[in-house]
Amino acid sequence: MAELTEKTSALLDIFGKHAPVQKDGTFSAEAVKETVLEMADYIIANKEECSALKAWMDSHDFWTSPASTRFHGNVKGGLAAHSLMVAVQALRFAPAFAENFSLSKISDNFSFTAEDVFIAALSHDFCKAGTYAMESKKTKDFNGNWKYEPYYKTKSDLRNLGHGGESVLLLLDSMPSLLKNRTVLEAVKFHMGFSDLAPMETYNYSNILQNPLVLLIQLADQSAAQWWDL
């Protein structure tokens, strides 16, 4: 618990130093990238995979993609800003979350580290990187004049394995050692909760919820999207 508290605090200090996201949800894309990279360098122990992860984000439009087409973070760079805020929220909640879980009867079955929290939060929406295209539509302004308004639309040729499943696959592309870390993979796969379950997955979903990192990332994702509009 002491190590988790120490490392989450250090990661949050990095966020505070750069101040990439403001209280009103505005953000500096450059500061977001700088913050994420510094946090990754600090917490990811496998430096080869850390480098591969950063290369993946550079080559898959992670830094410029929106977080959605209209629900939250639907601006250039919104995906990276949202992912950072999910990480920040998860890191803020993590020590108290872990302490509370330690009181439960299944506490000996699961554990998570600050590295697990950061990686799961950062990668939970990797499936969105490079999946949107900028288009424009003809609308009228307040004076009744026609104008072209830009908007994001999901690419028509998109193919993936589902929201959480695709993010897991893309994470493993750069960090294959996580194949043995079921705690993180479950947190990424099921970060959408009941809204993104296949019929067969609903039967054993209660087992998935025993993993505290699943619930932590779900809470962090929702609070980042709703409280910061990111």
Rank of each mutant, 00 (worst) to 15 (best):
M1G: 08
E6H: 10
T8L: 02
T8Y: 05
I14A: 04
G16E: 09
G16M: 12
K17Y: 13
H18D: 11
F27S: 03
S28F: 15
A29V: 10
A29Q: 06
E30N: 10
E34V: 12
T35D: 12
V36L: 12
L37S: 11
M39I: 07
A40C: 12
D41E: 08
D41I: 14
I44R: 00
I44V: 09
N46R: 10
C50W: 12
W56I: 00
M57K: 01
D61G: 05
W63R: 01
T64V: 14
S65N: 03
P66I: 01
N74A: 07
N74W: 05
G77H: 08
G78P: 05
L79R: 07
H82W: 09
L84Y: 09
Q89N: 14
Q89Y: 11
A90D: 06
L91T: 01
R92E: 13
P95G: 09
N100V: 12
I106T: 13
S111A: 14
S111M: 08
S111P: 07
F112R: 00
F118A: 03
I119G: 01
A120N: 02
A121Y: 09
S123F: 03
S123G: 04
H124W: 03
H124V: 01
C127W: 06
K128W: 08
A129K: 01
A133K: 10
A133D: 14
K137Q: 15
D141Y: 15
N145I: 09
N145T: 09
W146T: 06
W146D: 12
K147P: 10
K147R: 13
K147H: 13
E149D: 09
P150G: 05
Y151E: 02
Y152F: 15
K155D: 12
S156E: 15
G162K: 00
G164W: 00
G165V: 11
E166R: 02
E166T: 07
L171R: 00
D173I: 11
M175D: 01
L178W: 01
L179G: 14
N181E: 07
R182Q: 13
E186Y: 09
D196M: 05
A198F: 13
S206V: 13
S206P: 07
I208V: 06
L209R: 02
Q210Y: 08
P212T: 01
P212Q: 04
P212E: 04
L215M: 06
L215S: 03
I217K: 00
Q218F: 04
A220D: 03
A220F: 04
D221V: 04
S223R: 03
A224Q: 05
A225T: 06
W227P: 04
W228R: 08
D229V: 13
